[in-house]
Simulated assay, not measured.
Amino acid sequence: MPVIDSHQDTEALTLTFVAEFDASIERVWQVWEDPRQLERWWGPPQWPATFEQYEFTEGGRCRYYMTGPDGEKPRGWWTITAIDAPRHLEFDDGFAGEDGEPDMSLGTSHAVVTLGTVDDRTRMSVVSTFESAEQLQQMLEMGMEEGMRQALEQIDGLLAGAVRTGDTSSTR
């Protein structure tokens, strides 16, 4: 089980996940850097992601949608704000409208991803910071904590070369 800790801090307005993987930092970095690998784990198993735009550079825009079990397609966006490969990534994150452009009605969050080595394993922390306690609570009520935990749990299979359950494509 890769996720070793998750916690919310309502004073700091953060939701933090810590996971460990039996792979090098460089290999774990690839699951962020390569949009096809990212698609295989970003989102819970029953909500696979498709990245329509992925500019993995500082200032880069990323646009994606998730496909739900009933065919619904909620959209999201990132703007990458910092990259220090292979150890550090930051991006602003939010929901998008049907056109893929940011929908600010639910606010934005800022994610900081950090990779390090602990006992021959790679430890990854993902810290999301929210604009307000209300926004953090709304994301928790929408299932963000469980969804992110499920998403991160899929990385082990990806690192081992497995495909997403129900995925018949060798390119996803």
Rank of each mutant, 00 (worst) to 15 (best):
M1G: 13
P2R: 05
V3G: 07
T10C: 00
E11Y: 00
E11K: 12
E11H: 09
A12L: 10
L13S: 04
L15A: 06
T16M: 04
V18F: 01
E20M: 09
D22Q: 13
E26M: 02
R27D: 15
R27K: 15
Q30Y: 01
L38M: 15
E39T: 04
W42G: 02
W47V: 07
F51T: 02
E52L: 10
Y54D: 03
E55P: 02
F56D: 05
F56T: 06
F56E: 08
G59V: 08
G59F: 06
R63H: 08
Y64I: 00
M66L: 12
P69T: 13
D70Y: 01
E72Y: 03
E72N: 12
K73C: 07
W77T: 10
T79N: 13
I80S: 02
A82I: 01
A85I: 02
R87V: 13
F95Q: 03
F95D: 02
E101N: 14
P102G: 11
D103Y: 09
S105Q: 13
G107W: 10
S109C: 13
V112H: 11
V113L: 10
D119T: 08
D120L: 02
R121M: 13
S125A: 09
V126F: 09
V126I: 15
T129C: 03
E131M: 13
E134I: 05
Q135I: 05
L136R: 11
Q137F: 00
L140S: 03
G143F: 10
E145C: 01
Q154T: 08
D156F: 05
R164E: 12
R164M: 12
T165K: 08
T168Q: 11
T168V: 12
T168D: 11
T168K: 03
T171P: 00
R172V: 04
